[in-house]
Amino acid sequence: MGAQIAFWIFAIVTLGSALAAACARKIVHSAFALMATFFGVAGIYAILGSDFLAVTQVLVYVGGILILICFGVLLTDRVPDEYKVAQPRRWLPAAVAAGLSAVALLGALQATKWPVAAAPAAAESTVEEIGRSFMTSYLIPFEFASILLLVVLVGAARMARGGTR
């Protein structure tokens, strides 16, 4: 019962703030609404029993990606006034695209018989299992991920510095 109430609270927070992030007139408001969405999704992970992912979500998304987005908003704010007010937006095609994707996904959900157990596995800490997987069966992808992060770090710093060739 407690989990159910928590699920509905986090679901409403997540979807409401995601909608606000999508529709806010100013991009800064959008970024702040996104913070509530990330926290809501972290709560959903916690309800699902994935403690490691809930913490990672807060650390990486709220602590990293959101800060990056805020920096991007602030650094690109030196724009003429015409860009500061929200630009004319395409409500009709956007609503149609979002509605169609929602209908398609929900229809696929209803039509599919998922080959899963009726009840979830017992909730226990996943940290040890995830760490073991990274060091055994997922070792190669894990190393590739570290190389990718290094390349991204160097490349992003190089590109954001501007046009010295």
Binding site: M1, A3, Q4, F7, A11, T14, L15, A18, L19, A21, A22, C23, T37, V41, I44, I47, L48, G49, Q87, R89, R90, W91, P93, A94, A95, A97, A98, G99, S101, A102, L105, L106, L109, W114, V116, A119, P120, A123
Partner: peptide, 28 residues
């Protein structure tokens, strides 16, 4: 976790994805 089915989470994810589509198509 009692009373929460797999569909609860899948429907939430589908609606969140549709919101993302809305954001991508709406924003300039």
């Amino acid at each position: 976790m009692s009373g929460l089915g797999l569909n609860h989470f899948l429907v939430l994810a589908a609606l969140l994805f549709a919101t993302g589509v809305l954001c991508v198509t709406l924003r300039r």
